[in-house]
């Protein structure tokens, strides 16, 4: 098998070379700096402190414009919050319920089973309040962009007050190193000291961005820890099983070879 394999590799190398040499007209994607995440790697888990701080950043900053439609208050248990704490957070929101016995809709404080309340009642209202731009829902943001968590982190920390000399910013737009096209309608959302962390962590821009991205990585893939834990066990089992099957195969075939 060695010669065909070599040829396959050569062929792949040729294809890759053409791939590298060719893209003259391809749109250049901005470079996304890589960041070290608590949840990356085979054994990665979400840093609980970062999750709770990130939730604080979302609640105090992002949630003014961005919805989080896929997350219910009950889900916050994964952050390490107690049922009482979750109840207290939920009660801070008002949701519409009904109709009651008179047929009227009414407002009541949210319960743990309710979902996060969006900041705007509909898309038109969101656009009207944001200079025509629509702040996207953040539930799946980390999975919905090329580069994932690194991209969102790069975006949050990638604003520059002065755009490069050759860039003419459009009215109401901001310059961002990482955003495709570099002109983004969202004003820089995070600054040093945007929040005052309850746990006393110093609220630098990098810290805030790292925390909120960790939180959003969780909202996008709340199954991540269970998935990785289970994956390690499943793969270990399969490796042992396959090794034994291989030994058995050798034994059974020993009279043919």
């Amino acid at each position: 098998m060695s010669t065909p394999m070599n040829k396959l590799l050569t062929a792949a190398a040729v294809a890759a070379w053409i791939g590298v040499a060719a893209p003259a007209g391809a749109a250049e994607a901005p470079e996304i700096p890589e960041h070290d995440w608590s949840f990356s790697g085979m054994f990665g888990t979400f840093d609980r402190g970062a999750l709770q701080r990130g939730f604080q950043v979302y609640r105090e900053v992002c949630s003014n414009c961005h919805s989080l439609d896929l997350i219910a208050f009950r889900n916050l248990a994964a952050l390490g919050l107690s049922p009482d704490e979750i109840q207290a957070i939920a009660e801070g929101y008002e949701v519409e319920d009904g109709p009651d016995d008179e047929g009227e809709m009414f407002m009541r404080p949210a319960r743990a089973s309710d979902y996060f309340v969006p900041p705007f009642p509909n898309e038109k209202a969101a656009r009207a309040s944001n200079n025509g731009a629509l702040p996207p829902d953040l539930s799946l943001m980390v999975k919905a962009r090329k580069g994932g968590a690194d991209y969102v982190y790069g975006l949050l920390t990638g604003y520059e007050e002065e755009p490069p000399a050759d860039v003419e910013l459009m009215e109401g737009m901001y310059y961002n190193k990482v955003f495709p096209g570099h002109q983004i309608a969202m004003a820089p959302p995070l600054y040093e000291g945007s929040v005052e962390y309850a746990d006393g962590t110093e609220a630098t821009l990098d810290q805030e961005a790292e925390d909120v991205v960790t939180f959003l990585a969780w909202t996008a893939q709340p199954e991540l820890e269970q998935r990785k834990r289970m994956g390690v066990k499943v793969l270990l089992f399969l490796i042992v099983l396959t090794a034994m099957l291989f030994a058995l195969k050798r034994k059974i075939w020993s009279d043919v070879h």
């Binding site: 994956g231 499943v234 793969l235 399969l238 490796i239 099983l241 396959t242 099957l245 291989f246 058995l248 195969k249 059974i252 075939w253």
Partner: peptide
Amino acid sequence: IKDAFGLGAFMIVYL
């Protein structure tokens, strides 16, 4: 048995 071994190897990659 040969197919079973191949299946094991495949499942490792797939999973």
